[in-house]
């Protein structure tokens, strides 16, 4: 195996082993997405009884829940895997090994992907079984949308990790909260044009808003909004680039300040 891939696998193995030894951790991954799906599923059923709006029939709310959980689990999967290293005071050992910072980031992305799949797939199945909503009706564009949301989650998580490097575990609240601050701008359950003008500017700079616009186009109008898909990926490239710079800057600063050895509270 390529040495870099082996090091990435080493970090992933450490986290996968942790899951194997702790079933509550695995259940916790699926708990919130499943709960959200149940709540929004019944809400959708109720609203569709009293409204002819096509958004309810097309399952736009349910698609929104599933895709929002993708960005949320992606960010948390990355951030919590990094926090695990801080909580277990293992970061010092990792960072004096031949593991490069970019390999650590790659491993955290792989773990984020796995955590997201474990969290979201049961909710997808539930949506299909309980509410007859098949997210695959979005079509092949679903792969692109999911990828764009994963990337947005990674960009946020890289930024949060940079703050953890700067402020230690004291900044861990960011891992639980930052993504929710973006939810109003992400236009998960409503189109961007219902927002006030100044909020629309922020929304259109948010990759997720383009994904959700694209999702609505696919579910309600059965069309592939290529412009929104492209915008989501271009914005993601900018977000990830900026977050990577912030991460590298804070990593270097932590090496200057000497906080990596005993990073904690």
């Amino acid at each position: 195996m390529n040495p870099a891939l082996r090091r990435i696998w080493g970090v992933c193995y450490r986290h996968l082993t942790l899951f194997r030894r702790s079933w509550p951790r695995v259940l916790e991954l699926a708990y919130w997405p499943t709960l959200q799906m149940m709540l929004w599923g019944f809400m959708n059923t109720y609203l569709s009884r009293y409204s002819d709006a096509p958004v309810f029939a097309a399952g736009v709310l349910l698609g929104g829940v599933l895709l929002w959980e993708t960005v949320l689990r992606s960010q948390m999967g990355f951030s919590l895997s990094f926090l695990e290293e801080i909580w277990s005071r293992n970061l010092g050992h990792l960072l004096v090994s031949p593991l490069r910072p970019q390999e650590l980031v790659a491993a955290l992305m792989v773990m984020s992907l796995i955590r997201t799949a474990v969290g979201v797939v049961p909710a997808m199945v539930l949506a299909w079984v309980l509410y007859a909503f098949d997210v695959l009706t979005i079509g092949p564009a679903l792969v692109g949308f999911a990828a764009a949301l994963l990337m947005m989650g990674w960009a946020l998580a890289l930024g949060i990790t940079a703050m953890l490097l700067r402020y230690g575990a004291g900044a861990e609240a960011l891992a639980w909260s930052v993504v929710f601050a973006l939810m109003p701008f992400a236009a998960v359950f409503y189109p961007v044009n219902v927002l006030p003008g100044w909020m629309q500017v922020i929304a259109l700079a948010t990759p997720a808003a383009h994904v959700f616009e694209g999702m609505r186009a696919a579910l309600v109008e059965q069309r592939f909004a290529v412009g929104h898909m492209a915008a989501a990926f271009v914005l993601n490239a900018v977000w990830i680039g900026a977050a990577a710079l912030l991460f590298m800057w804070q990593f270097r600063r932590a090496r200057v300040r000497g906080t990596l050895f005993n990073i904690g509270e």
Binding site: R6, G10, Y13, S97, P98, L99
Partner: peptide, 11 residues
């Protein structure tokens, strides 16, 4: 498992 992790990291 810890030794496996570090074995992979150190190749």
């Amino acid at each position: 498992e810890n030794l496996r992790v570090y074995g992979h990291l150190y190749g």
